[in-house]
């Protein structure tokens, strides 16, 4: 698999590390506990389109939001997290 880093261009998988679902949002300190539990532990884990966070650790160190299909591994888009909604 290859990701096209918006800063560095297309690079191999070995340069990146994965975090997971990019759609979860860190709740506020005052939010109900179930929001926190959902944020830390619960995932949609879809079979198909997935918005996810990758880190270009062996490159520019940017966190990237990648839209990828978990069934086909097709990568639809890669954006720096700064131009996306922050999780």
């Amino acid at each position: 698999m290859r990701l096209t880093c918006p800063h560095c261009g297309p690079r191999g998988l070995e340069e990146f590390s994965y975090r997971g679902d990019a759609t979860v949002r860190r709740p506020s300190l005052e939010a109900p506990e179930e929001d926190w539990i959902a944020y830390v532990y619960l995932r949609d884990n879809p079979c198909g389109a997935h918005k996810e966070l990758w880190y270009h650790g062996s490159g520019c160190r940017a966190w990237l939001v990648v839209e990828r299909n978990t069934l086909t591994h097709a990568v639809h888009s890669v954006n720096a997290v700064s131009v996306e909604d922050a999780p």
Binding site: G20, D21, A38, Y41, L42, R43, D44, N45, P46, C47, T70
Partner: peptide, 18 residues
């Protein structure tokens, strides 16, 4: 590996990634 997909049919979200 398909637990999340099947559980979602009953409206559940699981602490699982495939």
């Amino acid at each position: 590996g398909n637990s999340s997909r099947v559980a979602a049919m009953a409206g559940l979200r699981l602490p699982i990634e495939s």
